[in-house]
Structure formats: structure tokens, C-alpha cells
Design a protein around this nucleic acid. Structure first.
Lengths: 305, 305
DNA sequence: AACTTGTTTTTTAAGGTCAAAAAAATGAGA
DNA sequence: TCTCATTTTTTTGACCTTAAAAAACAAGTT
């Protein structure tokens, strides 16, 4: 059966939303809530009913009024608001990137299902979607096998990334002066400088900034395949950097400086300069990733062709 | 329940395989059959049992002997040997590319399942895999929606293709002289010339040749993401060209000539020339594809952001 | 006249179970 | 070490239940 995660998520979001309201403040209409909370009216109504039951909302139907300030106790715990698929992703990425997976090993769907506490269906669906990330490979009528988070993987990933990023960067520079992207870029530049100042304590904030910056540049290409590919990059980096803490502060500081060069180049609109700064940045990113990949020997169970 | 398509496929393949044997010829061991037929031993044994039942094989177990020549009547009909997933692909592509799908329309999994005569699971699995082709888009907790086989799609597809193909072509040219790819290329060149001679009657053979040629070049890049992307190209072209018969002979003739130029450039190993011939070819391919896309107006049901 | 909301009904996707087919492992004998 | 018989696991694919979305509609509001 379907879980109630959507309802619980929406419920929590509603409580956050109501946090800004005064006691006896009138709650907006269902339609407006639906839009703001990004859920269907059915779900919103269920949430409202629950809020009334808990005496957070009062007033007769037709006009809801905040009866008491919601407390953090009212929130559903995080553990109940993650969908199965999100759980699977997290657990699978951990299993894949942190576990000592060797090229040629088989992925046992049934075992994963048991291990993760989800149905085989959930695993199957995830594997199908994850397939395009290039870390596993399907053998028809048989299991998936692991290609591994290897040096080759990183090199191939960066080969394509370089092609796409340089292209996007040039496209970015040729946008019209009035494009809102320029403003966003300026904001990001300021954020970069701000982070640089408090780098020693906040260096962990970089990964988010990094993602936003590259996504902005990539969007300029306006190409779904390039955008799609960036999903792969994001996922890999998101999980991998979570666990790679070696020299993190140092690395992030260097990356910020590279970004600033890159941003300046974008503002200059000089293609040569853009290409240069972009490549410089990607080169050190590649180096970092490669350095973190343990050069483990291939499994004894070699893949049969 | 699972169908018996693998068994039936293997059965047919076994019969073909036995076609070369004499009456009373001894059949190879199960292990060897398993290797040759590309199936598991379990399936092979099931096939052998069936063959005995039909008196095609005789002799007591331990050593099978051909008892009678298998007849084509013994084969399972093709309709019973296609897996569900293959059926879904074919039907879906037809539905997607031939049907009058508008951007913004929703994909109704349930209805497709009914229409195609398969389970909803099969559809869901296919959609998940098909998602990366960029023709449909997922909305969480809701249906997939159609992005459409539009002009933009073709342009974005070719933008990436151009990046990848030129890169692969250069990589191809820098392969060592001893690489077997050169021999394959020479063979393909000969095939191209042969086809050119009998173009008026055999022009339909081009699509296969086209695919093999481009795949060869792309493989030189040795990059899983580039290879993966070529799967998209292949699928689109495979289905789309099946139905686009306008000026086919003419188009194919022109394409062969372009290929020959391209091949010659590859042999010359001159990067400039390679890039030029490659781009020329891609430009006309793009033109052809664009021309075949009906410039249909977007659906009235506009997609809500 | 567009926008609410209460109510009800219909559809659809998420996510689970289960049976059978196919694959893989095990064992025993030559 | 290669064979085949038997047993165990795993994948495939169909089915089923329920949460969520969506749609429909009357009645009330701005």
C-alpha cells in the first residue's frame, strides 16, 4: 500500500507555514493553500481536518482560524516523511559508494530489499532509474552487475562534463544583458565572497553553493540532455563529498577562488577567458575526485562476458 | 506470472542449431549448449526435455541423439517469443511517435496498460527507463507528462550529438594503426560503395549501415555516457525512419555520399577535415529530421508549471 | 462572473504480495 | 575436471490495496 508520507510532509509544511500567523489569524482558502503547499486539495483538506482535530485550527468550517500556536511536537518526525523511493536512493548510494563494491560483483535485488527493509519492487524501480548513472549494468534475465565507482568512471564523467560545461558557459555569456541569469550570477558572486570570509567555520556550506552555481551556468544551454547529465554529476557529488572529508576546508577554499575567477570571466563575456577559467576549475575538481577514489583491485569474481 | 518467452526463444534457437546435425548425431553436452544458446542450464534442460517429448531427440539421458530432423512447424511462432518489455517498447514508441501526442498531455499508465494488454508494472518500468530519452517528464506523485517529439527536441538532440560525434571522430583518428577499428571501417566503406551501386532497389538497407557506422565511430570515445546517449539516437532514428518514407531513396543516397567523405576524412587522420565532413553530415541529418517533424500546435491543455 | 468550499465520486500511482520461470548453486558420479 | 540430477535463489511479471490526485457539482461569497 501507499504510505502516508505525502500527507505527513504536507502536514509539516502547513505547520511551518502557519508559524508566521497570529493567533486568531484567518487561514487562506484551500485553493491558495493547495498552490502554496504543492499538494492536491484532497491532501490539504485532510491536513486541515487533522489540524482541527488537534485544536490548532478552530472556527467553524468556511473560515479557519488559528486557535493555538503549533508546537514542534506537533510535527511528524522526519523518519515518517521520507518516501520509500527517497529511502532507497539514500541507502543504495551509501551501499554503492561507501561499501566496498568491486567491478563485476552482482547486485542482488532480493538481498538489497531485505537489507533496506523495502519491497523488491522498490529496488527494481530504483535500479532501472539508476541504470543511466553508469555505475551498474543490466544483464537481461539476470542480475545487475556493478561497473564500479572507478577511476574510469570519473574520467568518463569529467570528459562529458567538460564538453557540456564549456558549451554552457559560452552560451551563458551570449545571453542578452537583460536576462535574469546575470542578476542571479551577481548574487552568487556575493555569496561566494561572503563564504570566503567565514570559510574557517562555514566551509561545509560550499557544496550547496557549488551545485547552485554550476546549475545556473548549465541551464543557459537550454538543453534537456545537458540538464539531465547534470543530475548525474549532482548525485555523485552530493553523496560522494558527504563522505570525503579529507582536506575539505582547504579544497573548498581553493574551489571558491576558482569560481570567482570563473564568474569574473563570465561577466567579461570573453570566450577565451571563460573557457580557460572553466577548464582550470574542472581540472582541479577532477583531481579531487580521482584522489578520493581508492584504487582498489578488481574483485576475484570477474565478470563473465 | 512470468511468461515462457525465454524458453520458447531458446527452443527455437536450439532447433536452428540442430538443423546442422545429422540424424543420429550426438548432441553436445548441456554445458556446451548453455554456452552456445546463451541461456541458463535450467532452460536448456527444459528445452531438451521438450525435444525428447516431441521425439526430435532420442537416446536415453546422458547422451542425446538426433532422432528426426526438426521441421519449421516445430518452431514456436514469433508472436510467442517476444518478451513483454520488447512489446511495450514497440507499442509505446508507436504510440509516442506516430500518435498525435501534444506537449503537455498526460501519459496515463493505466490506460496504456489496458491498450497494450500488459500489466501496469510493465508500463511503469518502461516509463522509468524511457524517461531519460527526454520525450516525457515525471511529475512526482502524479503522471508523466509529454514533452513531445518537437523541433526543440530534435535541436537539443543534435546539439549534443554534434559535440559527441566530433569528439569521437577525433578520438577515432588518433587510434593506433593496429586497432581493429580501422579494418572494420574499411569493411564499412566497401559496404557503402556496394550499397551505392544497388541503391535503387536496396536503399532501405541504409538505416542498418548508418547505425553500424556511427556506432563504430562513437565507440572510439570509450565513454559510457557517450555510448549511452547513442542509444537515444538509435532508438529515435530506428523508429522514426521506419515511418518517414518521404524521399527516402534520395536522402539515403545523399547520406551514403556524405558517409564516404567522412570515412575518407577519418582515414586521412586530418582533424580539420574530419570535423568538417562530420559536421556536414550531421547538418543534413538534422535537416531531414526537422523536416519530418510536423509543426503541430501545442495542445490546448497547457502544462501547468 | 469568477471564486470559494463541502461533498462525493472516480482515477491513478505507489508500493506491497505472490507464483512461476529462469538462473545459479550444490552434489554425486564418471 | 567434466558431466548430469536435484535443490535453492533470484528475477520477472501479474495482481491487489490504499493514499493521493483529480474531477464534478451544488451552493454560498465577494
Amino acid at each position: 500500500m501507499r504510505g502516508e508520507t505525502v500527507f505527513k510532509q504536507t502536514f509539516n509544511r502547513t505547520i511551518e507555514f502557519l508559524g508566521d500567523f497570529e493567533i486568531k489569524g484567518v487561514v487562506p482558502s484551500e485553493t491558495i493553500l493547495t498552490r502554496n503547499l504543492n499538494a492536491s486539495r484532497t491532501t490539504v483538506r485532510k491536513v486541515l481536518a487533522e489540524l482541527q482535530k488537534r485544536k490548532i485550527l478552530g472556527g467553524s468550517s468556511g473560515e479557519w482560524v488559528v486557535a493555538r500556536r503549533p508546537r514542534s511536537k506537533d510535527l511528524f518526525p522526519d523518519s515518517e516523511t521520507v518516501t520509500t523511493s527517497a529511502q532507497v536512493e539514500k541507502k543504495f548510494m551509501e551501499w554503492m559508494l561507501r561499501g566496498d563494491r568491486k567491478a563485476g560483483d552482482v547486485v542482488n535485488g532480493l538481498e538489497l530489499a531485505r537489507q533496506f527493509g523495502v519491497s523488491t519492487n522498490a529496488i527494481r524501480e530504483y535500479l532501472n532509474r539508476f541504470g543511466r548513472f553508469g555505475l551498474i549494468e543490466r544483464r537481461p534475465n539476470s542480475s545487475w552487475i556493478i561497473r564500479g565507482f572507478t577511476k574510469e568512471f570519473a574520467l568518463e564523467l569529467f570528459e562529458v562534463r567538460e564538453l557540456f560545461d564549456t558549451r554552457s558557459a559560452i552560451a551563458f555569456a551570449t545571453q542578452s544583458e537583460s536576462s535574469p541569469a546575470w542578476k542571479t550570477l551577481r548574487k552568487l558572486e556575493i555569496e561566494h565572497r561572503a563564504l570566503l570570509r567565514k570559510i574557517s567555520s562555514h566551509y561545509q556550506d560550499f557544496s550547496d553553493l557549488d551545485e547552485r552555481f554550476h546549475r545556473l551556468v548549465n541551464n543557459a544551454s537550454n538543453n534537456r540532455f545537458i540538464a539531465d547529465f547534470y543530475e548525474i554529476i549532482s548525485l555523485i557529488f552530493h553523496y560522494h563529498y558527504q563522505w570525503n572529508k579529507v582536506d575539505e576546508k582547504q579544497r573548498n577554499r581553493a574551489a571558491i577562488l576558482e569560481h570567482l575567477d570563473y564568474i569574473e570571466a563570465l561577466f567579461s563575456r570573453d570566450p577565451k577567458r571563460i573557457e580557460l577559467t572553466c577548464k582550470t576549475h574542472l581540472n582541479s575538481a577532477r583531481k579531487t575526485l580521482l584522489a578520493s577514489i581508492s584504487t582498489s583491485a578488481p574483485s576475484t569474481k570477474e565478470r563473465k562476458e
